[in-house]
């Protein structure tokens, strides 16, 4: 089962994610805040969809439902970042980011950091499980979803 990180993987000061002005992704970000991973699934044709859109790309039904899924998947690709592209990351690197494929949601993918040793060997196809990371920012609290190698599955 997924856990919660106690300290953040990357330093504070990076851009804070917020839903668009039209609210398209608001359920996703609210879900992370509650330790829940929500992605869209069309109530008419059962197509999974992430990132969100106002329409199902398969059948064109509007306003696809948000459905909670278990946060585990497989590493589809990865990168180890060395160059700091933001002042908050100077003196910090390297760090790992992974693209995770969620097989039980028809392979939708999402990006997070891979927790643990940044020098670790990363294997495409390896099983990972989600770890919710909460940022108690005074004005704009937000939550992220990271990944760590899965023990069970």
């Amino acid at each position: 089962m997924s856990g919660e990180a106690t300290q953040t993987y990357l330093p504070q000061g990076l851009p804070i994610p917020v839903a668009e002005a039209d609210g398209l992704s608001a359920p996703y970000w609210q879900g992370l805040h509650q330790n829940r991973l929500l992605v869209q699934r069309c109530r008419h044709c059962a197509t999974w969809q992430f990132g969100p859109e106002w329409i199902c790309h398969q059948c064109h039904a509007l306003d696809p439902d948000w459905t909670e899924i278990e946060p585990h998947g497989r590493i589809f690709s990865w990168e180890r970042v060395w160059h700091p592209s933001h002042a908050a990351l100077r003196q910090h690197g390297p760090y790992l980011a992974v693209l995770v494929e969620i097989p039980h949601a028809s392979g939708v993918r999402m990006i997070g950091n891979l927790l643990g040793d940044p020098a670790q060997v990363v294997y495409i196809g390896a099983a990972v499980e989600g770890v919710f990371e909460h940022h108690p920012h005074p004005e704009r609290p937000y939550s992220l979803l990271h990944w760590r190698p899965s023990s069970a599955r």
Partner: peptide
Amino acid sequence: IDTISGEKAYLMPYGIL
């Protein structure tokens, strides 16, 4: 950049900048 929405919101907080 203070806050970010859309595609970059899924990337930038993870250091994909």
